[in-house]
Amino acid sequence: MDSPDSSPPKSRFETFRDRLRQLYHGRSPAALRFQAVTTVVDLLIIAFFIVTPLLREKSAFLWIDYSVAIIMIAEIGARLLASTNMLRLLRQPTMLLDLFILSTLLMPQWLENFGFLRILRLWSLSHKGIVWAQFRTTRFREWENVVRALSNIATFLFVVTGFVYTFFFQQEGGLESYVQALYFTVATVTTTGFGDVTLPGIAGKLTSIVVMIVGITLFVRLAQALFRPNKVLFPCPECALQRHEPDAVYCKACGHKLKIPDDEA
């Protein structure tokens, strides 16, 4: 006779969801391999988004476009199944962004002018806990802030390049026009301002102003990440202060004794 406290056996669907949760959020060797593979696939998809303007006229473009859409549908579906609260996940900015990117993949003819926003997938990737969980398990975890700053700058550069190419250089087309758009973006963001490539009209000037202001801000953040004294990320049990000196014994905010793990141990 079964015990009254015994739970019914899980269905195959629930077992499958549990397995996905272990793969997405676990720390086992199999989970880490799965997370590494998904990160590599994400980077390949982002690389496709970056070169999309150069591939748009190719005969195989739509095949690649829809193939990437299928991969994203599978990945988004797996994330939803692995989540314990699907509605909350659907409301997150990164998920909303991924759904928008997916719509541009499924309807490339109608949303062509918004294709440059696909590069924001790099920002979405930089906010996935999976990526930073892997980062923190290595000896390079003190470079996390630098990598975050670099990913923000790279996202901004390629989004602006896509925007400039779409609305100012697309009629010329080709690799040279895309490189011109990238060259203008980098020259403007760094405030070098050679002036050999400029955007026409009031819209071009306003675009240049926005790019310079946001670009300077991102470069300041990168400089802070590079030259700020190295700190260890470890939440204080008492006051939750995150950043401490590598050899700190006591929290400088509340004086609570810390037990920061030693990487050399």
Rank of each mutant, 00 (worst) to 15 (best):
K205I: 09
V160Q: 08
G193D: 12
P246W: 08
F140W: 14
M95C: 14
Q109R: 10
V41A: 12
P229L: 02
S28D: 12
L90S: 14
T15C: 12
A240L: 01
T191N: 10
E112L: 06
S67I: 09
F48E: 09
L206W: 00
N230G: 10
T198A: 02
K10C: 08
P246F: 00
I202M: 07
Y24G: 01
Q171D: 12
A203N: 06
L97Y: 07
C251R: 07
R88T: 13
K128G: 14
L233S: 07
L80K: 09
W143S: 11
T190W: 04
G193L: 09
F169A: 08
S151F: 01
F227H: 11
W110K: 10
R79P: 01
G174N: 14
S3K: 05
G26N: 11
L157W: 11
L54H: 07
V186K: 00
L23N: 13
L218R: 04
F168Y: 12
P4F: 06
K259I: 08
F114I: 10
L96F: 04
F156R: 01
G204S: 09
P235A: 03
A240R: 13
I45L: 09
L105H: 11
F163L: 14
T38A: 08
T185D: 03
V211R: 00
N152Y: 08
Y24R: 05
E245T: 08
A47Q: 05
L44T: 09
V160F: 03
V159F: 02
W123T: 02
P8S: 14
V186Q: 02
L23D: 12
R91Y: 08
E142W: 00
E172M: 13
F114C: 11
F135Y: 11
M1H: 06
P4W: 06
R21V: 05
L258Y: 03
R136H: 14
R88E: 15
L122K: 01
L32H: 07
D262M: 05
V232T: 15
Y183E: 09
M107H: 11
F49P: 00
L206E: 10
A223L: 15
D263S: 13
Y24K: 04
K58Q: 15
P93I: 09
L80M: 15
V40G: 07
T192P: 00
P108K: 10
D262H: 05
N152S: 10
R121V: 01
F194N: 05
L55I: 04
R121H: 13
L89W: 11
F194Q: 05
T207G: 01
I202Q: 10
K257Q: 15
G26Y: 07
W132C: 06
L20M: 15
R91A: 15
E75C: 05
S126D: 13
F100T: 11
E245A: 14
A181D: 06
L87C: 02
W63S: 12
K205W: 06
T104R: 01
F61T: 02
L105A: 03
G255R: 09
W63M: 13
V37H: 01
E264H: 04
